[in-house]
């Protein structure tokens, strides 16, 4: 008689991790399909519809391309902060702050064309940086938990943008009365609707991965992130590194807000982030601390979001779509854990 049991391994191979994820996503889709079949939909037809609409047409691919830009950046923002052991739950607020600052420059600064874009980019990054400045200093000097501070500042930024877009900066005589006038400076598009923000986001992710892996600074950041006491043991200026990394994290989220304004929406309006800041947390979790992994996780998240939009046009409610999204993430998390296990056979 052979006896089978599970054995947990301390680390997992990349192949096993990837396999577990693919399995998890497939399983989530099967479960979703069964449920859809129960409520009278044809899951296969819907699935085909999703795949052909998002991957089979240039329209679908362009939508994906636009969605993936902010997701890469907010995911990167959260991932970078994680490297030093900080949870930036405020990418949402920094996104808004960046969009706000970039719009201010775009609307009011006497700059033209390319210079206006550069100004908006600097302002966007700076806006995000300012928005995380207080949480960063509070964590560094008073050990105030950044989870709370960054989260709470989100609401401030969201309401600030609602205020200016429906009041102070509102487009007078506009149609909706809930957005600023159109900002003239626009990031040029290089493929259909997709603008140069996409290569910028990808390059930024690669650059962060490089900084972390191939610089002395990156090594110190990873070290402190893994064990702050080790930083003390080595005499590394842990506080300075913490502040720097958190400010970079905020600036990246702020830049995401600027790209959304200058590349995609062209006006500041309430709800402009589409929850990209919070979705960035999920992207970061899926990327498991890898800056390059963020690119792929963001692509997956964009595909899920895009599928959701398509499914909604097919008569599925938002709740159903959210449930399927949740199912995929949930099973992926379980798959990540299970990839540590293997079945062994006891000889008896």
């Amino acid at each position: 008689m052979a006896d089978f049991r599970l054995q947990r391994l301390p680390s997992t191979t990349p192949a096993a991790a990837l396999g577990a994820r693919i399995l998890a996503i497939a399983l989530a889709l099967v479960i979703a399909g069964v449920i859809l079949a129960f409520v009278g939909k044809n899951p296969l037809a819907l699935g085909l519809q999703v795949v052909t609409s998002s991957l089979g047409s240039s329209f679908g691919l362009e939508d994906l391309g636009l969605l993936v830009i902010p997701l890469i950046l907010t995911g990167l923002s959260v991932t970078v902060a994680q490297q030093i052991g900080a949870w930036n739950i405020g990418a949402e607020g920094q996104f808004y702050a960046g969009a706000f600052a970039a719009s201010a420059v775009g609307l009011f600064a006497p700059l033209s064309g390319g210079w206006s874009l550069v100004g908006m980019g600097v302002a966007g990054a700076f806006g995000g940086l300012v928005w995380i400045l207080i949480p960063a200093l509070a964590r560094a000097y008073a050990n105030v938990n950044e989870l709370i501070t960054t989260l709470l500042l989100n609401f401030v930024a969201i309401l600030l943008v609602y205020y200016v877009s429906t009041d102070a900066w509102r487009e007078r005589g506009g149609v909706a009365n809930s957005a600023t006038p159109r900002i003239k400076a626009e990031i040029p598009e290089f493929w259909g609707l997709v603008h140069w923000g996409l290569p910028i986001a990808v390059l930024l992710a690669l650059a962060m991965a490089g900084l972390l892996a191939f610089t002395r600074w990156g090594y110190e950041v990873r070290l402190i992130g893994s064990n702050p006491a080790a930083g003390k043991y080595l005499g590394i200026a842990a506080r300075r590194h913490l502040i720097t990394v958190m400010l970079i994290s905020g600036a990246i989220a702020g830049l995401a807000g600027m790209l959304e304004i200058a590349g995609t929406v062209h006006r500041l309006q309430g709800g402009i982030s589409n929850n990209y800041g919070y979705l960035g947390i999920m992207v970061a979790v899926l990327a498991r601390g890898s800056s390059i992994g963020v690119i792929f996780a963001a692509a997956l998240m964009a595909f899920i979001l895009n599928s959701g939009i398509i499914l909604q046009t097919q008569g599925l409610t938002t709740s159903t779509v959210l449930a399927i999204t949740g199912l995929i993430l949930f099973l992926t998390a379980i798959g990540d854990e299970l990839s540590h296990y293997r079945v062994v056979r006891d000889k008896s």
């Binding site: 610089t215 070290l223 080790a230 080595l234």
Partner: peptide, 27 residues
């Protein structure tokens, strides 16, 4: 030690800042 980091990262903790591990700021 930094328990979550690789054996390599831990082994070089004392000498990461100088050649041959870091040359001109490049790790």
């Amino acid at each position: 030690l930094a328990p979550g980091l690789s054996i390599t990262a831990n082994a070089v903790m004392r000498e990461y800042a100088k050649p041959p591990v870091t040359i001109a700021g490049i790790f």
